[in-house]
Simulated scan of single mutants.
Amino acid sequence: MIEYRLNCDADPTDYLTVDKDGGDLEFFAHRGGGSFLVSIYPTVDAARTFARGILALADEIDGGEAKEEPKPAAVRVGDRFTVTRSFLEWAHVRAGDVVTVVEFVDDDSGDFRAVIEGGSSHRWLFGPENIGNGLEPLGTRVTADEPATVTDPRLTYFHQAEAALAEFEHTAADIIALARFLAGE
């Protein structure tokens, strides 16, 4: 049996209980820690009307139940944001920069790392609390087919090496030798 109990705010030893006994609803008023005062057996429709009346009175007092704030959409890798606050979270970003989410921190915080499009490959740390407070969603997502634009000299060298070796059969040792040469070793 499920019983609902409503304690008096002024004296917690006074309370009302409501439960179901078969097809009947039972309301009981208790005083002083358990002494029974009165019982009421309303019809189901009368109980609903009574409950609606209690809700209406409570709404008049406090304006109704608090509305839940909509939760922001989950951030995903590839999401793009416009920076609206320079040096947000001490990152070397400026208002107007566009950043792309590239990875998440390995915990439940929701923190993520993002790169500045057209900037260095450095990954800056932001959190969900920055969305709408320094980062504004662009509404577009970069996909695997369309990687974020990052300019890094090493990436340029890699693509040049890839193109240079494309017409030749090459091994991992050849690529490492080329990398060492490009690094000046």
Rank of each mutant, 00 (worst) to 15 (best):
D106C: 00
D107T: 07
D107Q: 05
D107S: 06
D108V: 05
D108L: 08
D108K: 13
D108H: 03
D108S: 13
S109L: 06
S109C: 05
S109A: 06
G110V: 00
G110D: 02
G110H: 01
G110I: 02
G110N: 07
D111T: 03
F112R: 05
F112N: 01
F112D: 04
R113T: 04
R113H: 14
A114G: 03
A114C: 07
V115F: 01
V115D: 01
V115N: 04
V115T: 06
V115A: 02
I116D: 04
I116H: 01
I116G: 02
I116S: 03
E117Y: 08
E117T: 12
E117S: 09
G118W: 07
G118S: 08
G118F: 04
G118P: 01
G118T: 06
G119Y: 07
G119W: 00
G119I: 08
S120A: 13
S120D: 15
S121P: 00
S121W: 03
S121M: 07
H122G: 01
H122R: 12
H122D: 10
H122Q: 14
R123Q: 15
W124I: 01
W124L: 10
L125T: 06
L125C: 03
L125E: 07
F126V: 03
F126N: 02
F126M: 04
G127L: 09
G127I: 06
P128D: 02
P128H: 05
E129V: 07
E129W: 03
E129C: 02
N130E: 10
N130G: 00
N130T: 01
I131Y: 00
I131H: 02
I131N: 00
I131R: 00
I131M: 06
G132P: 07
G132Q: 11
G132N: 09
N133K: 10
N133I: 05
G134N: 06
G134S: 05
G134H: 08
G134E: 09
G134I: 00
G134Q: 05
L135H: 09
E136K: 15
E136I: 09
P137C: 11
P137I: 10
L138W: 00
L138I: 10
L138N: 13
G139F: 10
G139M: 11
G139E: 11
T140R: 14
T140W: 09
T140A: 12
T140D: 14
R141Y: 00
R141N: 12
R141E: 11
R141P: 06
V142L: 09
V142P: 05
V142Y: 01
V142N: 06
V142S: 15
T143Y: 09
T143Q: 08
A144E: 15
D145T: 10
D145V: 00
D145L: 12
E146R: 14
E146F: 09
E146K: 13
P147C: 04
T149K: 14
T149R: 13
V150T: 10
T151H: 15
T151F: 15
T151E: 12
T151K: 13
T151D: 13
D152Y: 06
D152F: 01
D152K: 08
D152A: 13
D152I: 01
P153G: 10
P153N: 09
P153F: 13
R154H: 13
L155W: 10
L155K: 11
T156H: 10
Y157N: 12
Y157G: 07
Y157R: 14
Y157T: 09
Y157S: 13
Y157K: 14
